[in-house]
Amino acid sequence: MSGIAWLVEPMSYPFMQRAAVGTLAVGVAAPVAGVWATSRRLVYLTDAMGHAILAGVAAAALLGASLLVGGLTAALVMALLVALLVVRARLPEDSAIGVAGQGLFALGVIGVSVSSQPRALSHVLFGNPLTISSADVAAVIALSVIVVAAVAVCLPVLVATTFDPVHARTLAVRTGLVDTAVIVGLGLVVVVGLTTVGVLMALTLCIAPATAARLLSARVTRVLFLAGSLGASAGLAGLLASYHLGLPAGPVVAVLAVAEVAAAVLARTCLRRRHAN
C-alpha cells in the first residue's frame, strides 16, 4: 500500500474522519494543559482525578444531571479533599491523593453498580474515538479552543505562579484562584477526554507529550507548542496505525505518546554527548 493510500484510505469512512478530528483536538488540548500538570507536580493528581471522575459521572447519571458537570464536580471535590487532607490532617501529598482518589473511585464503582443501567453507563464512561458523535467532536473542539486561549491569555500569571507561587502572592496574584483554575482546567480535559476518546488516551495525552516537550526545550512557549504538536501527531498517527494494525485506538495512541518520551530522552542524551565532545 502506498504512503498516501495508507493515510487516505481510512479517512474515506466518516467515523474515521470524526475520530481523527476528535483525537487531534484532544491531542492539542490535553498536552497544553498537561504542561502545567507536569510543571506543578500534578501528574499523580491528574491520574487520580481520572478515577475520581467516575464517582461524579455515576452520580450525575443516577440523578439525571449532565455527565460533564458531574465529572467536573468530582474533580473539584477531589482537589478540595486533597487540600483538606494535606492542610488539616497533615498527610503527605501523595498519600492524600491516593486516599481521596481511591475513596471517590470506590464510591463511583458502587454508584455504577446500583444504577439501573450499569451496562450502558460503563460504555458512556469509557469513550471510544470510533463512536464519537458530531456533538462530541464539537465539545472537544470547544475544549481545545478554551484551553489554548486560556493558556495564551494567562501565560504570564501561569508562569509566575508555577515558577514561584510564594513570590507571586507578594505581587497580589491570587494564587489559590490560579491553582483552582489549573485543576479545574485539567479536570475539564480529563472529563471531556474520558467521555469522548476514552480515559487511557485522555490521561496519557495529558502527561506524555508534555514530558517529552519539556525534555526537548526549556522555553515555555516552545514547550507548549511542542507538546501540542507531539500530542496531535501521536493522536493522528496512533489512530491511523490502529486502523491498519487492527488494534484498539486508545492504547495505540498512548503507546505512541510514551514512545515520544523515550525518543526525547534519547535525543537529549545524544545532544549532551555531542556537546561534551
Binding site: P10, Y13, M16, L130, S242, Y243, L247, A249
Partner: peptide
Amino acid sequence: AEPDAKTLA
C-alpha cells in the same frame, strides 16, 4: 469486545 477501526470499516 468492541471492534477496532479496520474491523468497523
